[in-house]
Computed example of a mutant assay.
Amino acid sequence: MSADLFQRTGRFRKGYDRRQVEVFLDRAKQVWDGGGPPGGITSWHVRTVGFNMRRNGYQVPAVDSALDRIEDAFVSREERAGPASWREAEDAVLARLDRADGARFPRGRFLGLGYRIRDVDELCRQVREHLVLGRGLSVDDVRTSVFRVGRGVRGYREAPVDAYLDRVVDVMRRRGS
């Protein structure tokens, strides 16, 4: 490979796998330059991409910051392409928020790890206040939210929560939040 795209962490610290980052960014650039062919990378792919951690990898904050900017660009392009059914997406997000605390998402399985229910429900209250009342919450607040571990049925399963938060981010972006 040629010059590094980002600063490295050093030999004794871990960062994102350089090769994986470079391959993803090359693919994103090809899709961007080609106008975004069907089946290509979307803002969702950029938001949910994950990389392995390696010694002497790329510094995580630098890569994450670049991914945020790339995601913003893809969202902007997707919005110009036409609002597919944004109102339906917003209605689905709001409907989940109307559920009672502790009942918004599927519970974890016996001995499994998930997200602490109280933490997720608190973020859901903040999302509701933002979407309904216009109270301050940013896309980055949702995108970078962290939850404590909830074991077994004392936690929500991670995948449905993560998928829902992706939809919340989409709705907030489309609203210009």
Results as ranks from 00 to 15, higher is better:
21 V>I: 06
22 E>M: 10
22 E>L: 08
22 E>Q: 14
23 V>Y: 04
23 V>K: 11
25 L>C: 05
25 L>R: 02
26 D>A: 14
28 A>F: 03
29 K>D: 14
30 Q>K: 13
31 V>D: 15
31 V>A: 11
32 W>D: 09
33 D>V: 10
35 G>I: 08
38 P>E: 15
39 G>M: 05
41 I>Y: 04
42 T>S: 15
42 T>Q: 04
43 S>C: 08
45 H>E: 15
46 V>K: 01
46 V>G: 01
46 V>N: 02
47 R>T: 04
48 T>H: 14
49 V>T: 15
52 N>I: 00
53 M>H: 12
55 R>G: 09
56 N>W: 04
57 G>A: 06
58 Y>G: 01
60 V>G: 00
61 P>F: 07
63 V>A: 03
64 D>K: 13
66 A>F: 09
66 A>Y: 11
67 L>I: 07
68 D>E: 14
72 D>G: 15
72 D>V: 12
72 D>S: 15
73 A>I: 06
74 F>T: 01
75 V>R: 10
77 R>E: 09
77 R>A: 13
77 R>I: 02
78 E>C: 05
78 E>W: 03
80 R>I: 05
80 R>G: 12
81 A>G: 14
81 A>T: 13
83 P>Y: 10
83 P>D: 12
86 W>H: 11
87 R>I: 13
87 R>C: 02
88 E>G: 05
88 E>Y: 02
88 E>D: 13
88 E>Q: 13
91 D>K: 11
92 A>K: 14
92 A>L: 12
93 V>L: 04
94 L>N: 03
94 L>H: 04
95 A>S: 14
96 R>Y: 06
96 R>E: 05
96 R>I: 11
97 L>F: 10
98 D>A: 13
99 R>E: 08
100 A>G: 09
101 D>I: 00
102 G>A: 02
103 A>P: 01
105 F>N: 03
106 P>E: 08
107 R>V: 09
109 R>M: 05
110 F>A: 07
110 F>T: 06
111 L>D: 11
112 G>N: 09
112 G>E: 12
115 Y>E: 04
116 R>T: 03
116 R>L: 15
120 V>G: 00
120 V>D: 00
120 V>S: 00
121 D>Q: 02
121 D>G: 01
124 C>F: 03
125 R>M: 08
130 H>V: 04
130 H>C: 15
131 L>I: 13
133 L>M: 12
134 G>P: 02
135 R>A: 11
